[in-house]
Amino acid sequence: MIQIANLTKRFAGTAVLDGIDLDIEQGEIIVVIGPSGTGKSTLLRCLNFLEHPDAGQLTLGDLQVDVTRASRRDILAARRRTAFVFQNYALFANKTALENIAEGLIIVNRWPKDKAHARAREILERIGLADKADAYPASLSGGQQQRVGIGRAMAAQAEVILFDEPTSSLDPEWVEEVLGLMKQLAAERQTMLVVTHEMGFAQDVADRVVFMEGGRIVEQGPPAQLFQSPQDPRTRDFLRKVLAAQPAPQTL
């Protein structure tokens, strides 16, 4: 269970996150949509303390943090409860696919190497890359790299996996395999907070869609409700532009 209360982040005086409140149930899949530069990525980065929020309270499972008073230990604890999937994969270039997945288990969770590698092999199996265990990132396709990125996040056994536009830098041919893996995780009720422009994914997979603009949550609801009868004019305006640019979800 995750609770975000009044989360605020300013860059040079401008509020990029302007008091975000959001609760996420265990096993819930939330997709965040909205125009560029409205703080969607910053929201994810603040939950993981890749950006330090200026105000707010976070509850991540058994951890409660007032971000203004977060100690180094709180930050490490928060990071262990949230796993991050990056837009550009960000795999460790000096480590194989297997080692990328096992690294956190060995170094952060202090598992013995054998146990960590065994777990990493299970995960490689689940992400369909068992045959790439010893491949280095440079020899993997974009889609394969991102699946390893997701595998690394799965290994962390975090309260929630944060996906920051996971398909935005992929060539179109690799998008499906990454979305497919995310759907598989969703079916296993892995708690997910996903920032994406893939409206079809939001429509099919999300339990709840959150529309953000100007650092605030404007509107949220089940996908059918948000896509078919958006209440706020800003939501309607955004959806009209986005759906004109990409094929509409089938049910629309």
């Binding site: 890749l50 990071r79 795999l91 956190g104 962390a156």
Partner: peptide, 9 residues
């Protein structure tokens, strides 16, 4: 990669 390493704690 630095961010990825920090993100896993």
């Amino acid at each position: 990669q630095t961010e990825a390493a920090l993100s896993i704690g």
